[in-house]
Design a protein around this nucleic acid. Sequence first.
DNA 1: CTACCATCCTGGTTGC
DNA 2: TGCAACCAGGATGGTA
Length: 280
Amino acid sequence: MPELPEIETIRRGLLPALKGKVIARVDLRRPDLRIPLPRDLKKRLEGVRIVDIGRRAKYLLIELESGDSCVVHLGMSGRLFIEKDAARPPGPHDHVMITMDDGVRVTLNDPRRFGLVTVLRKADLPRHKLFAAIGPEPLAPEFGGAVLAAALAGKKTSIKAALSDQRLVAGLGNIYVCEALFRSGISPKRRAGTVKGEKAAALARAIKRVLNEAIASGGSSLRDYIQPSGELGYFQHRWAVYDKDGKPCPGCDCNVAKTGGVKRIVQGGRSTFYCPRRQR
DNA sequence: CTACCATCCTGGTTGC
DNA sequence: TGCAACCAGGATGGTA
């Protein structure tokens, strides 16, 4: 599942390949993604130069010289591929293919079609429905205990659900929420509003650390962030608790047969993984 | 306003 | 071995 670090890694991988290039051709193969592709998408992209690539939460923002931004979200199963040319015939779930003036092609592949591609005026992004309610970027310098505690204040829901809510903090998904809570020793079941003061500061630090480490792992393990297949943004990372149900928690020297190790529970219909001994 | 739940989708895994 | 049932979860819209 692509979360903030994967999108950031994709951004860094795309930037050198796309910045300054002119989009030569856009092929739309399936219009029915999470929101329908805009009818004028092709017209607004073709012949236009890419000036930068940004990111907000889990959204990739391909910024164009025209003042438009092409907005890409990968949903749950979306992947981006980059290829030196457009020789490969389109495969299943290749929904949008964008070819540059130098022949480089970027393909959005998304089997579940929870992703989206649209184009908006860059100046309108902050007020647009997709972005207006999104919370603070956790890697921004100003994000810390105070900002986090303010977002959580008064929330009766679990800290797990709160951190997964894009309106409170941007970019976290199931995996990084579990990992950040583990690192800060906070139970996923704890009421969000009770995380304040030094606890909130520790959680904010854990969030930054887990995201930065994942981004660094993506950057260091793959040349230019691009796998041999041309896929961008994915990398092998060792989770402490995510998907480790029944495995020993890396912080406990406990006997799994006795303690049960990492525990899986369901919150809001989603799996949560945590260590009941270290997380309170 | 908050909290909670169902829904969208399909590849991969599990169970019989 | 084959097939059906189940599971994964980001975002959103509806309900209480």
